[in-house]
């Protein structure tokens, strides 16, 4: 076989698969979003954006992403640095920390619901310690902050590991000699982190952040389990349009809006963390 063709032949199956199960449905969804059965229209977009719940769910989605992702970034960097420094038991710790990765997001939501609900662990523990007289309902409409905090905690618990894994791999690729050079030339551990680890980790940070931010805009099951209708988010609205209001066109329109937001943020992150021209990392 012509060696110049071989690479293309090798990626052909995957390309076909993606076209069939991703690109084609995507075109269908786009079609659905921009049509009302007779021709091109923006009415689906108008309908969903003019609905009173849209600004709230948009705000909630952004708020949650804004609250969760920076904490996860800091946490995963800290955890990755710690794991890298470990000599023994490193793999074990990494396995334990990545357990939440193996749990579906709905299951994660339910686990945290079991903690926060009125008959949950938190209430019985506080009751057992004599801190409260009677169980309180943390997740009610009277305590929106508590609902938000519960969702935040669940999201951080559930989805920090994906960033951690990427960053651990990235840090492992940085040659030790750079740190030794940093030490010899007077960089403190904190300076070595800022001046060597972070810049050299840029490609991994890009991947981790893009992945995490996209997932944050698609947040659904955890919110559904803990907040229900108290905390509407964009993906929840998509679900509601599709399966409760049976309005496929509107659901497709919201899905495309989420996609647009995701693409925008991906581009922003790629640009912000780009490697300077000429530098090779």
């Amino acid at each position: 076989m012509n060696p110049r063709l071989l690479p293309y032949v090798l990626i052909l199956p995957v390309t076909l698969f993606l076209c069939l199960f991703f690109l084609y449905p995507f075109v269908l969804v786009a079609q659905q979003a921009f049509s009302n059965g007779s021709g091109f229209t923006m009415s689906n977009f108008r309908d969903v954006t003019e609905h009173w719940k849209f600004p709230i769910s948009l705000k909630n989605t952004f708020l949650l992403a804004l609250a969760v992702v920076p904490i996860q970034l800091a946490l995963s960097l800290l955890m990755a640095t710690m794991v890298t420094k470990m000599k023994k038991g490193r793999d074990l710790i990494l396995y334990v920390w990545t357990i939440p990765l193996g749990i579906s997001d709905l299951a994660a939501g339910i686990i945290w619901l079991a903690i926060f609900e009125q008959s949950g662990f938190l209430n019985s523990m506080m009751g057992g310690l004599g801190l409260i007289d009677s169980p309180t309902n943390f997740l009610s409409y009277t305590s929106p902050v508590m609902v938000f905090v519960a969702i935040m905690l669940a999201e951080i618990w559930r989805a920090t590991a994906i960033m951690l894994v990427i960053l651990v791999a990235g840090i492992g690729l940085i040659p030790k000699e750079y740190y030794e050079a940093g030490e010899v030339f007077g960089a403190t551990p904190w300076q070595r982190f800022l001046k060597i680890t972070l810049p050299m980790l840029r490609p991994s940070l890009q991947t981790a952040l893009v992945l995490r931010v996209i997932l944050a805009f698609e947040v659904f099951a955890v919110v559904q389990a803990l907040g229900g209708t108290l905390f509407p988010v964009l993906m929840g609205e998509t679900y509601a349009y599709q399966f409760e209001l049976l309005n496929g066109g509107a659901a497709a329109a919201i899905a495309l809006i989420i996609l647009a937001i995701s693409i925008t943020f991906t581009l922003i992150i790629m640009r912000a963390l780009r490697v300077p021209k000429g530098a090779t990392i």
């Binding site: 750079y178 050299m200 530098a279 990392i281």
Partner: peptide, 8 residues
């Protein structure tokens, strides 16, 4: 291996 920082 020189350890010349590639990002600087």
């Amino acid at each position: 291996n020189y350890a010349v920082f590639p990002h600087l």
